[in-house]
Design a binder for these strands. Sequence first.
DNA 1: TTCAATAGTTCACTAGTTCTGAACCATTGA
DNA 2: TCAATGGTTCAGAACTAGTGAACTATTGAA
Lengths: 103, 103
Amino acid sequence: MAQLFHPSREDITLAGVLSALADPMRLRIVKSLMEQKDCMSCTAAAPCPDMAKSTLSNHFRILRESGLIHTTKQGVEHRNVVREADLNARFPKLLKTILGYAE
Amino acid sequence: MAQLFHPSREDITLAGVLSALADPMRLRIVKSLMEQKDCMSCTAAAPCPDMAKSTLSNHFRILRESGLIHTTKQGVEHRNVVREADLNARFPKLLKTILGYAE
DNA sequence: TTCAATAGTTCACTAGTTCTGAACCATTGA
DNA sequence: TCAATGGTTCAGAACTAGTGAACTATTGAA
């Protein structure tokens, strides 16, 4: 399995963050992760149970590559956290403002 | 020519706004319009002069249909304004926060 | 060790979107 | 009436997203 790519803090772009969050499913994933305040596996954070695994995997990849989440392998599953510190350093209040309006 | 469609204030969605602003060109268009504080024609607000007319037209349509801008026909040209009041009523501070990070 | 179960990824396909040039429409001014 | 200006629409090429099937990696049980 290929190494999971994460952009460094300074490589996180506004366009990347916005386009990652522009998808309602990904917005719900990030919201779930934020509310949990703890690492979550991909399936645990899935916005709806009937979503195809490959689709879910793709959403997590987009969130990861845009710098919104950090993923680590832990045994058989992947643990995900929102990169709050990096995002707040890069774009203060942006994440909180956007997530505040997510249903 | 078809009538220009504008969503009503309550039909402006977060996903629509975010995906409209997720494109760097559209972000620059909105930023220009905000800075101008006055109506601007489509070509005047164009982020780069070499962009195809059809592409520009499409960007303005997306901005219009997502509720970000309001367009009125005035003679031969279209005058555009950012729907600040509607956006601030719907998602307070969102626009200002996002545009603050646009280069 | 072997084998099945679990959690994700990758691949190939289909469906939809974006960018572009060409053709078009509406308004204005000569 | 006719050319110029400012946009829109259309069709095609290039790209992107969603999905099932096949795959990889880890774990736990026999």
